[in-house]
Structures are given as C-alpha cells and as structure tokens.
Design a protein around this nucleic acid. Sequence first.
DNA 1: TCTCTGCGTTAGCCACTTCTTACGTTAGAG
DNA 2: CTCTAACGTAAGAAGTGGCTAACGCAGAGA
Lengths: 111, 111
Amino acid sequence: MDAAARAVAEPTRREILHLVRHDERTVSDIAEHFDITRPAISQHLRVLADAELVTVRNEGTRRYYRARPEGLAELTEWMAGFWTSSLRSLAIEVEREQWNARKQQQRKSKK
Amino acid sequence: MDAAARAVAEPTRREILHLVRHDERTVSDIAEHFDITRPAISQHLRVLADAELVTVRNEGTRRYYRARPEGLAELTEWMAGFWTSSLRSLAIEVEREQWNARKQQQRKSKK
DNA sequence: TCTCTGCGTTAGCCACTTCTTACGTTAGAG
DNA sequence: CTCTAACGTAAGAAGTGGCTAACGCAGAGA
C-alpha cells in the first residue's frame, strides 16, 4: 500500500494510469503523450508495476500495459477507510501483507 | 489535489493524519509519538496544512492541529472517480458505510 | 521586567527521485 | 545471418524531500 500511495503521488504516473485505465497500450504509444523520453516512461511503468497498479502482456517485442482494477480498488478502499478506527488495524495489516508479498515476488489473493 | 496526493504519500504524514483524525493535538503531543524531532513534525504539518488536509487552532503559544474531513473526502472521491463508473460507485458505497460507522461511534468491525 | 514554554523557520547535509544518454536484449522482416 | 523495431537497464547529473541543529518569536507566569 505504501508503494501504491507513492506511485500515485507522481503526476506523470497518474497520467499514465489514466491513459491505460481502459485500453492497453505499448510503451512507445504512452511515451508519445509526454515530453520525456521513452526510458523515463519505462521507469515509471516499473514503479506502477511494482505497486501492482498495472499489468503487462507481452506480444513479440511489444509490451502492452494496462491498469489493474484490483490494485486501484484496494487503494481507493484504503483511502476511504483511513478515518475509521475500526479499519485502522486492517489497513496496517494489508499494508504489511502486500509489502511481504512484494518482497517475495508472489501474488496475493484479493478480497 | 496534487498537493494532497503528495502529502499522503509520506508514511509519517499518514500517521500524523491518523493521530489527529478525531481529536485535535498539539505539535509536541504529536512529536512524542515519533522518533524524529519536533521541527520535523512542524514541517510535516505544514505540508499537510498546505494540502488542506489539516486545520489549526491557536490557543496561547499552543497550536492544535486537527484533520480536515473535507480534504480527505475530496481525495478519496478523486481516487474513486479516477477509473470506471462501476468502481466509482463501489468506492462511494464503502465510504458511506464507513462514514455511518464513524457517526455511530461503535467499535464493531465492519466489512 | 525576566524567564520559560511552545512553536515556526532557516541552513546545511544526506538520501532518494527523476530524467537523459548510452548500451544490451529479444523478436520479426528481409 | 543481418538489420531494425521495441523494449529494459545502467550510470550519472540534476533536482527534490526529509532530517537535525540552531535560532527567532510570541504568550504566560513569577
């Protein structure tokens, strides 16, 4: 969750998420919408992928990125539940689990 | 909006927000919960205040900080509205449930 | 008045982030 | 096999962010 929050904090990454929120796009396609170079976009996509906010599909030499709805839903839900004390421990636990899951490079079962 | 997203990206600031989410607290009071110095807390509070996520009340030499619910609500709503309409309504539903739970001041765990 | 408390601000340092340039890799075309 | 397109990655520069130490300032009390 910490990774997702930091990923969304970047304006460029938010624009990228908005671009791939419905359709999948290649890296070059995404890069055309910005003034920065393609490698910079690749690095942003890596951050988004580590935060599990996007998924990738390989097709030949091309890589199609797409927003991962579950990750975004988790982030939104965490945001909404930030205020209630009853959900505090839950949020912390989820954050810890996802941190461990990321370190172990394994997929976590979603709610 | 951009300021709010950046403010929440910091773990320390999220903890601060959590501390003042219900009761107002002084800077020294907040600083006692962390290992960092009081000026560092002041700087974090300034970021949160600039993002309009907290409000201040002066009383003598003391400054009481408190979370500003509207600020977080805007952030949550923006997050929810970032994607598809289906996810949006889901997130709003969750938010409404938790708002009701908070109003009831009950400690029961909710979904 | 003088002193103390509570807090904000500044300067400087260190760590992290973001970007570009250059290079390495893989898959398909010819 | 050679060439090219579409990537990822490494390395370094430049910028940003968070922290501490030191200082400044206003309010309360003796």
